[in-house]
């Protein structure tokens, strides 16, 4: 039993790595993508739009396979599964976060920018001190949903052979003719998402002091 738990712990660590690394890169990158979608430079807008359409319009599984095999077939390069997996997740989630940010940015009335400008704030000051806090408040619920989806999506990393928790659990369960490992994995996703949703509920509550 001990080696099984140890394996599952390793799988859990991998799942958590995928989760945190994806957030680390795609949360800020989503802003860049959102900017691209909102720019007045048309070619940039078109390309950004196409990218978002592809990311939202095709399965993440397919994107994982693409990012793992494409560099090899197209350029003769190969890199490790884990890196490929992170790249695919980041590219995919940046698109989703971008759409969330864009909606949030557009929900802030233009008058907020104008009030900032008339008072003498720089654009950057207005963005970080006036606009961004309001964006964060409006997008909190959709962001929460997306992060919960990410927790569950980490299980897809096994498609390209990354030994995340669910793969470890499946392997163990067929080896030992037992559903216990799968059950343990399920418990992990549940607990993880319980924590995530509590955190988001807490954040929403904290931002509840204004409308």
């Amino acid at each position: 039993m001990a080696p099984l738990l140890l394996q599952m712990l390793e799988g859990t660590v991998t799942s958590l790595q995928i989760f945190f690394l994806t957030l680390l890169f795609s949360l800020p990158l989503g802003f860049v993508v959102a900017k691209g979608k909102m720019t007045s430079i048309r070619p940039v807008r078109w390309i950004t739009d196409l990218y978002i359409q592809i990311m939202r319009g095709t399965p993440l599984i397919l994107q994982l396979i693409f990012f793992y095999f494409a560099p090899f077939y197209l350029l003769g390069l190969s890199y490790d599964r884990f890196t490929a997996c992170i790249v695919a997740f980041v590219v995919n989630y940046s698109a989703y976060f971008a759409e969330i940010y864009r909606t949030g940015l557009q929900a802030v009335p233009r008058g907020q920018w104008e009030a900032g400008k008339v008072l003498g704030f720089s654009r950057a000051y207005t963005f970080f001190h006036i606009i961004l806090p309001q964006v964060v408040k409006t997008i909190m619920p959709s962001l929460g949903n997306e992060v919960i989806t990410l927790v569950k999506d980490t299980a897809l990393a096994q498609t390209i052979g990354v030994s995340e928790l669910f793969r470890v659990a499946q392997t163990a369960s067929s080896r030992e003719f037992s559903t216990v490992p799968i059950f343990i994995a399920g418990l992990f996703y549940f607990v993880m998402n319980y924590i995530v949703s509590r955190l988001f509920a807490l954040a929403e509550k904290k931002l509840d002091y204004y409308r």
């Binding site: 008058g111 104008e114 009030a115 003498g120 204004y210």
Partner: peptide, 19 residues
């Protein structure tokens, strides 16, 4: 900038910072 600091504007819709 100098002119900007000399001119103030009050909007129809107030545009106070809600947060």
């Amino acid at each position: 900038r100098r002119v900007g600091l000399k001119t103030g504007l009050v909007f129809q819709s107030f545009n106070l910072f809600p947060h």
